[in-house]
């Protein structure tokens, strides 16, 4: 009898845990402000979350990309440059895992902004993409104005800094997870395989989340 009670207890606990997992919701990051407006004669206060600013870029295929092209997509953003010798190879190796996990699913993209647009022209980005073994439209390598990229980077909570005296770009190596409404839902150290595993798990959670 005792054993039976223990067994039932374990089953119940197990189910409780499973239930919690299903309910997991990712936080909304970034700044927020309360907006009060009048709807149908009633005063309503709403929270407005920080979103990613409008962008205008060109991808590795030479196509113009603006923020409309990302509408309704969950995406992961990072910053890189093709000649980066330090942390980029680790980041790309890790991002390839994300790419391979979701390359066949709809409504998902990876956008990598180059912070060295002068060197990283469209043909350079295309060659880089080919050598990395990526094709199709899941992973875009984007080239745009440097100032604009730095503005975008700021809003992604990532600092992208000017060239250091040694002649190399410094950047933080973060992967940023953005939801369908362009809100920041997570930041992950792109050089850490464990954090990238968490990112892949979080994308699955986000994909299952109903858009409110």
């Amino acid at each position: 009898m005792k054993k039976l009670v223990v067994a039932i207890g374990i089953v119940l606990l197990w189910n409780a845990c499973k239930f919690n997992n299903n309910e997991k919701v990712l936080p909304i990051l970034g700044s927020r402000r309360a907006v009060t407006k009048v709807v149908n004669g009633q005063t309503v206060t709403d929270t407005v979350y920080q979103t990613i600013p409008a962008i205008k870029y060109i991808n590795q295929y030479g196509d113009s990309i603006n923020d409309k092209n990302l509408d309704g997509n969950i995406y992961v953003a990072d910053f890189f440059f093709t000649t980066c010798p330090s942390i980029c190879p680790i980041m790309q190796r890790n991002m390839l895992n994300v790419y391979n996990a979701f390359k066949d699913s709809t409504g998902f993209k990876i956008v990598s902004y180059t912070i060295d647009p002068q060197h990283d022209s469209i043909p350079v980005l295309k060659r880089y993409a080919d050598k990395l073994g990526i094709n199709g439209n899941t992973w875009w390598l984007l080239q745009g104005h440097k100032d604009e990229t730095y503005q975008v980077a700021k809003s992604y909570l990532v600092s992208v800094q000017e060239k250091n005296p040694a002649g190399e770009y410094i950047h933080d190596g973060y992967f940023i997870l953005i939801d369908k409404k362009k809100r920041i839902r997570g930041t992950y150290d792109g050089t850490n395989p464990d954090e990238v595993k968490k990112l892949i798990a979080d994308i699955k959670i986000l994909k299952a989340e109903p858009v409110i």
Binding site: P85, S86, I87, P89, I90, Q92, R93, L96, K131, L132
Partner: peptide
């Protein structure tokens, strides 16, 4: 290791 990888695997067609 950053470029050539923990297991010397390199990176696709780049490294």
């Amino acid at each position: 290791q950053n470029c050539h990888g923990t297991n010397g695997e390199g990176l696709q067609g780049l490294i």
